[in-house]
Nucleic acid binder design. Structure first.
Lengths: 209, 209
DNA sequence: CAGGAGTTTGAACGGTAATTCAAAATTTGA
DNA sequence: TCAAATTTTGAATTACCGTTCAAACTCCTG
């Protein structure tokens, strides 16, 4: 009736408040994980940002790993949504890919201020690791499908699509390592430049080839 | 006269052996850091790979941080050498950039099996951190200079060169996260594909713009 | 093969950080 | 305002891991 993530019957008001706190904790954790990495982040670090003691966190999450897990889940849900949008909204694969890149960058910089998609999956338990990796692979396959489709219909030149996906997602994931909100580089510019650069490297329009 | 990294007078044969052991340790550490990250790697992990107990490591390095530091130093020395070569050997900036990318990928995959340039600089002491970051910045400026030069002489289109550098180095650094020697992707192919993709995204040859 | 330099080890120490828990503080709803 | 539910806390527990050190071992050299 009190601990961990077990959800019990309670008034809507209380539930709501609890949800808000959970979100706050997740947010603080996200920021800390991005800045110092999972292992170097202590529960005190996270709690301090909220004016709490670390033991209070146990009221909302069963353990540290669970916090990381939920960070991953949230990020992956964003990416999933974004990929579905890309399929719906565009016909051209180049446009589709550019949209995915721009939006993924936006998720990294704004929504989640640095997605821990980027971070230590290995810190999770084997089962959770498998789940997260499966979701990440699904997203990667989505990007790959766009590239392969674009190669078929002549929008893109012939490349190793697996490697192209790694190049694109590597650029984006690495953002978590250097991006700081309020720095000299603006999020939207970052997204467009990345899209131009990374889609441009695939488009099929030059001299011979 | 026995501990840490203090070098004392001793026979050449002994020194040589000691050097070899140091290199072995560095190699094992590099692999472990790449796979699990610095904080999640214990000295036992590193020692085990060599059939040693963790305490033996203290004969070669004063502490864990020193091992990480030397990993960084080795990587950065490679990159420095590579950048000088690029300047000497080529006239075209596109070729220069392609060379840097290919060679950096090679360093990541072969020479050092995953450069910890990619890893937790924050784990180092402030002084060492400053030193490593300075060296890393020097390398980044080298890449940026190639791009800016290429923009001036018309080889590349107009981009935000800072962002372009982040895209390129992000792709490459991220390799450490997924590359496993002996996997389905070969190192040399990886280098060429990355070079094509990332240089291609900058070249100035399409329709309007 | 003897002696010493060089290397490795096991045991022990100390600090840090995750986790547990019962009690205190706060908030909720009537 | 009061009692019950919920949240937060401080103290205590535990486990892990980097580090120290003296003793044991190995290897080189004369």
């Amino acid at each position: 009736m009190s601990h961990g993530n077990t959800q019990v019957a309670s008034s809507p008001r209380v539930r709501e408040k609890r949800e808000r706190r959970r979100a706050e904790i997740l947010h603080a954790a996200l920021r800390a994980f991005r800045e110092k990495g999972y292992h170097a982040t202590t529960l005190d670090d996270i709690a301090e940002h909220l004016g709490l003691r670390k033991t209070a966190l146990y009221h909302y999450f069963p353990d540290k790993e669970a916090i990381l897990y939920e960070c991953h889940c949230e990020s992956l849900a964003e990416l999933d949504r974004l990929m579905r949008d890309a399929r719906k909204r565009f016909d051209s694969d180049a446009e589709r890919l550019a949209y995915v890149i721009r939006e993924h960058v936006r998720v990294m910089t704004e929504t989640l201020e640095g997605s821990p998609l980027a971070f230590e999956v290995t810190a999770l338990s084997v089962e959770r690791q498998a789940e997260i990796i499966a979701a990440r692979d699904r997203y990667e396959r989505g990007v790959r499908r766009i590239i392969e489709n674009g190669m078929k219909n002549g929008e893109f030149r012939q490349v190793n699509s697996k490697i192209a996906v790694f190049a694109i997602l590597g650029s984006i994931n690495w953002i978590a390592r250097w991006y700081r909100p309020g720095g000299s580089i603006h999020a939207s510019e970052l997204g467009s430049e990345f899209a131009d650069h990374l889609v441009g490297g695939l488009t099929c329009d030059r001299r011979g080839e």
